[in-house]
Structure formats: C-alpha cells, structure tokens
Design a protein around this nucleic acid. Structure first.
Length: 492
RNA sequence: GCCCCCGUGGCGCAAGGGUAGCGCAGCGGAUUUUUAAUCCGUUGGCUGGGGGUUCGAGUCCCCCCGGGGGUACCA
C-alpha cells in the first residue's frame, strides 16, 4: 500500500534528523535557474561554480557516486555527487528519493559523455517528499489525477507546465497592450444583486448579514459601462465570470474574461484591438502567426475578413432573414429542420439557426458583423440599418473568441430593449436579461459613445497553445468531489 | 441531461468465466561517469463501491460513485 511507501520515506526523514539534517530546510541562497546555468557549462574542462535548486526527477546511484537529475521551472540539469567530494555528507545523498527537493552547489562541467553537469561540492535536502512521484518514463496518463492533483501533474507533465506558463504570457501581454492603449485596469463586483451583460444562467448565493440573494457575475459589462459614465474613458478588467451551464471542452463554469471599453470609439476600433492582441500574443507564445488545431492551420495576421451575419446566414441557407419577425423565423426553422421552443424570441431563434447552419463552417480568423437587433440588448443600432446592431464576434477555428459592440448609450432605447428582455425572462427564457434600473439611470447621466469588447482568456490560451481541452489551460478545473472528500458545507 | 467507453499494487499497463501478472518506483545486495543506468534477490493488490448469475467473476448482469469521449445546453 501507499502507506508503506510513505512510511519508508518518513523513516528516511527521521534518519536525516538523526544526522542533524533538517529534511524540511529553509532559505537556500545563490541559486540560478537551470536555463541560465546551461550556457555556462564549457565544452571542455571545468567551468564556473554555481548553485541550483529543484526537484529530483531521476536518480542513478552507483555505490559511492550518484547522478541526480534536478528540475526547476526552467529545465533539468544533472548533478553528480561523489562520496570522495562530499565526505560524510554523502550519507545525505544516499537518503534522497525521487521527488525530493534539493539544493546543490559545485562546478559546472560536462561529463565524458557530454552531459552538462553540476559536479557537486555540496548537496542539501530542502524538502523530503513523502509520497512517490508517478512513473518516471510514462508520467501521469490518468486525466482525473492530472486535473485533481495538478501539483503532481505540473511536476511530471511537460505540456501542463507549457500551458500554465503560456497562460501567464497571455494575461501579461493583454495587460501590456491595453495599458499601452491608455486603458486603466479596474475591478468590479463579483457578487451582484442583479446579473447582466450576457445571456447566461447565473450561480446564486446568499449573504447572511444582509440576508440577501446575490448572483455571481456572468459578465463585467454593466459595471464597466458605469465607469464610462463616470468619465474613466478607457477601462478594462480581466477576471472570472461564472455561468451555470454545461461543461465541455470549451466551457468551464468559471472562466476568465477580459472586457474593455473605449470612449469615443466604436466596434471597428475593437476589431483592430482584437487583431493586435491575437497577432501579438501568437508571436509571443508560438513565435509566429500561424495557429494549428485539429489538423487545421490558420494565420492570424491582420486584417481579418469581415462577414456580415445575415449574409453568412443567406450564404448557408438561401434565406434572407433581414428584419424577420418571430413568425417568419419560426417558419425558417421549420424549413431548415431546426428545433425551437415556444418561448424563444427572435434573438434566440436567430441564434439557433446561426449555431446550427453557420457557426460550424467558420474556420477563421473572421469577424462576423452586424447582428440583428434582437440578438443583442446592449449594442447600439447600426448607423445604416436600425434592424441591425453594430456588433461583431471574432471566430478562430470556428469557435467564438470575442464579442464586441458599438455600445448603446441612448437611455430610452436601452430601457426599451431591456424591457423586452425582461418580458422574455418572465415568459421563461432563463437567459434573458433582467431590467437594471440603476444601469439605465447611469445612461441617463450620459455615457460617451464607446466601443466595447469581451474576450475569453481561456479560449485564447487554448488557441495559442493548441490545448485540446479548456481543462488543460485552467489549473484547477471544476470536477465532482472525489470519494472520501469532505461533504459540501464542511469547514464552515 | 442523454449515448458510448473506462476504473486492476504509488504510477504505467496485461489477464475478457478457471489460482491476478509485467514494467517503473520501493526494499536488501553489488557498483566512483550514469542518463528510462546495469546485475542478483525481494515486499506490496478483497481488481472504484454494492448487489446478482455461476460449482467458480477484473471478466457476465443490475444499481451507485468517479473519469473520458460524443451529443444537447452554452453570446
């Protein structure tokens, strides 16, 4: 049993203590990352002295010498420990296990087989691992363990580290680009008395002292626009949204969204921003502008094509649905053999047709533009056609990456559109908007015309890294509790 | 939600009605330039849980738990 394996390691920790060595040491000075050490190893002969710290991934003991492969965040380096160099301290090396965290100091030099190596003058145990690591060659194959015990996954799965580090590049790069454009980063409430800004079902929770129902936000949009009213002019937020919906390879119930709003701009400015963000980050993460997924390659070099929504629908179905009302849209669904619910409004019906007939054919990169007004309660009407809104969605590999509008700043139009949403909500459309009186009041104070954008950070990371599943780019994806874990509510 | 598949020592895998095996890791021994080190020896499993069929069940059936894929839902 694993208890035996743990016991063996615990006994080694005890033996280290008996030698006067703390198996859970503290600060270890003077180290450099492995990636910085490797160039310092001379082709022949001894190089400079150096120190490193990391986890033992492999170990080869030869009696009075031991080779340790030590890994840090940047790579792996072999450490060579000899009894005649370390003296009595070699006893410590003999008590090391795979998975232990060690520090080593010595001379950088290649071995006779050409392997860059730290010839150790000192080896220190910094942390004794009590549990054995996964199999050293095949690693972790069980996705359940990989996601539940990400701490183990990250130590042995190269891809897991690659995704995690790519994600930080994505987030940092996004901030850098937005900051350079004069946006300021803000934080808005996660707990909201009224949710909005997207069509989705929320999570609900409760505040005890105030005894009030609260929702976890499904979007940051309505608060960020209040800040435009307040005169902050260019704002963005990168944070978690929560949507109480299904889980699949592109959806996790909590996910990270970047939303930004730029006063005096419109949706065409947001297109340029999307192009810049995606192309720049593609270069930083992949080294180029070509992305590959499911055997398909796409080039994200700007500019991306623009495809009007109704034109795309017409191209795929032969139907012109411009300004179509509910009866006509229902008829179209029947003609196309697409199922619909009685409670669905024009927006939902159009979305059904779109999702069934058009979206699967989009590879991208492409901006789908100018949606029918019913699909979107928060976007400005099209300057040339009041049946449309100035909105686009960015598609990569046929999946939505981002959504943007010229923002609606006419309080009367906004009120009417939200009232229509409230009517749909009352009629049973669980994803329709609720009326938000304070938001309308804010618009009545005057919101500058603006372009706004929302972009999925998890999805962008997937597209840039080729990750097959959103769970790969979320360090701790939602899973059911494992057997034997505390029941819900424990720990309160 | 529905359909299909999977769950076997710490990890990676066999065994598909007839006594549960192998590799890695572990333990003991040899080994002062190895790198999935090697060699000799060796510990460890009520086969996710429960019920059933059978003389006999990892194996067949039912229920439950967990996971994966697909599908539905999903700005």
């Amino acid at each position: 049993m694993s208890e035996d394996l743990i016991q063996v390691r615990a006994e080694k920790a005890a033996r280290l203590r008996a030698l006067g060595v703390d198996p859970y040491g503290g600060r270890y000075d003077g180290i450099e990352p492995v990636a910085a050490l490797l160039p310092k190893v001379p082709a022949t002969g001894p190089g400079p002295e150096a120190a490193l710290a990391g986890r033992i991934m492999r170990m080869r003991a030869h009696g009075k010498t031991t080779f340790l492969d030590v890994a840090d965040r940047t790579g792996r380096l072999q450490v060579y420990a000899r009894a005649d160099q370390l003296g009595a301290a070699y006893e410590v090396v003999s008590l090391l296990d795979l998975g232990d965290i060690v520090g080593a100091q010595g001379v950088l030099q290649k071995t006779r087989t050409g392997e860059p190596t730290l010839f150790a003058k000192a080896v220190t145990i910094l942390t004794k691992a009590l549990r054995p690591p996964p199999e050293k060659f095949h690693g972790l194959a069980d996705p359940e363990i990989r996601f539940r015990q990400r701490y183990v996954d990250l130590t042995v799965t190269e891809e897991a580290r690659r995704y995690a580090l790519a994600r930080t590049k994505v987030v940092a790069g996004m901030r850098r680009i937005l900051d350079a454009h004069g946006f300021v980063e803000v934080e808005t409430p996660v707990l909201q008395p009224l949710y909005g800004g997207a069509a989705a079902r929320p999570f609900t929770t409760h505040h005890n002292t105030l005894d009030m129902k609260l929702y976890l936000r499904i979007a940051t949009e309505l608060y960020l626009k209040r800040l435009l009213v307040g005169g902050l002019e260019r704002v963005y937020e990168i944070g978690k949204d929560f949507r109480n919906e299904g889980i699949d390879k592109f959806h996790n119930p909590e996910f990270t969204m970047m939303e930004c709003y730029q006063a005096y701009a419109d949706y065409t400015d947001m297109m340029a921003l999307v192009e810049e963000i995606v192309a720049t980050l593609a270069r930083e993460v992949t080294g180029g502008t070509t992305l590959e997924r499911d055997g398909k390659k796409i080039d994200v070099t700007p500019p991306w094509p623009r495809l009007p929504f109704l034109q795309a629908v017409r191209d795929r179905t032969g139907l012109d649905l411009h300004a179509a009302d509910v009866p006509r849209l229902r008829e179209a669904c029947r003609t196309l053999g697409i199922a619909f619910e009685p409670g669905m409004g024009a927006g939902a019906l159009l979305d059904a047709i779109w999702s069934d007939r058009v979206e699967p054919h989009l590879i991208g990169p492409v901006f789908v533009t100018d949606y029918p007004v019913e699909t979107t309660a928060l976007a400005r009407r099209h300057r040339k056609d009041p049946a449309l809104v100035e909105r686009f969605e960015a598609f990569l590999f046929g999946k939505e990456l981002g959504n943007a509008f010229s923002e609606l700043n006419d309080p009367a139009d906004q009120r009417a559109r939200l009232e229509e949403q409230a009517r749909l909500l009352a009629a049973g459309d669980a994803e329709a908007h609720a009326m938000d009186e304070d938001f309308v009041r804010a618009l009545e104070h005057g919101m500058p015309p603006a372009g706004g954008l929302g972009m999925g950070v998890d999805r962008l990371t997937m597209f840039l890294t080729g990750a097959p599943n959103i769970r790969e780019v979320i360090l701790f994806p939602l899973l059911r509790p494992e057997a034997g874990s505390p029941p819900p509510g424990a720990g309160g």
